[in-house]
Amino acid sequence: MNFLKRVVSLISSFILVLSLGIMLANNLVKTKLLDKDYIEEKMKESEFHEQISREIQSSFDEYSLQSGLPEGTLDDLFTDSMIERDVSSILNCVYDGTQISLSDKAVREKLDEKINNYIESQNMLLTAEGKANIETFKEIIVEEYKNNINISSKGYVKLHEIVMKFKSVSDEIGLLPWMLVFVFGALIIWLNSNNLLRAMKHISTSILSFGMLLKISVMIIIKTVDLDNLILMTMSITNFVINIVKEVLLEFSDIGMFCMFCGLVGVIAAETLKGNLEEQVEKKEKEVKPYRRKLKR
């Protein structure tokens, strides 16, 4: 019976570790991946909008020389607030499923103004073909703007579907991990009700194991994934994603360390208390022994 209790306690400890893992994973998804405000905050921290601005201007500059237009024609075609609005539109598409709406019209208007001003200032007489070439060029520049922000409309729609799936799974999981932790914690205590210190040891071992799992997982990820050399579509997206991944890994590492410490302290405390109790029992036995001998006679 005792052996069975120990086996069930061990299995419960193992399931407790899994429950803690599910709880952490669900929390990560809910508070980071599915939280639009968190993503926006991280974008500000990693200067995402500024990087996109630089990328767009850099792609415009590559057309500048070959266009034959004076230096500066392709500068200041967009503002920081336009970039922020457009990025926000994409985030809304990913999280809320709304249509993406970009500021390409405003870019086109500014470009029209600058090129027309240049042509007028040079008193150029353009042929129909020349005018058509200029229109094509303007379309190329506007497309560059759109493509640098909206890398893939289909991709963002797909991302929205994935976000919705995660949301539904997370909602379904709900409070289940908490319930599992409570149930199996209570089961361990019940099975070891005549030796609560053993129950404390089992629970502490679970927490220690969970901490080790986190630390080892983070170590494996850091060793196998070359985070600093990842390239995801553009540098702005790469830097943004890597920042979040590094923050999550650091958080996991800290939680792991804390759990390992708490687990070890729990085990040591349980063993220390057990030792103290045994000492006390031994003392009492020594006191009672002479009286027992007398009674036996």
Binding site: L208, S209, M212, L213, I216, G263, V267, I268, A270
Partner: peptide, 24 residues
């Protein structure tokens, strides 16, 4: 007493590690 505590701690660490190996 200290030896007992250390033994118990090592036992727990081994059990915890075995849990990690099983999960992996």
């Amino acid at each position: 007493k200290i030896m007992k505590i250390i033994k118990a701690a090592i036992k727990s660490i081994i059990v915890a590690f075995l849990f990690v190996v099983a999960i992996c």
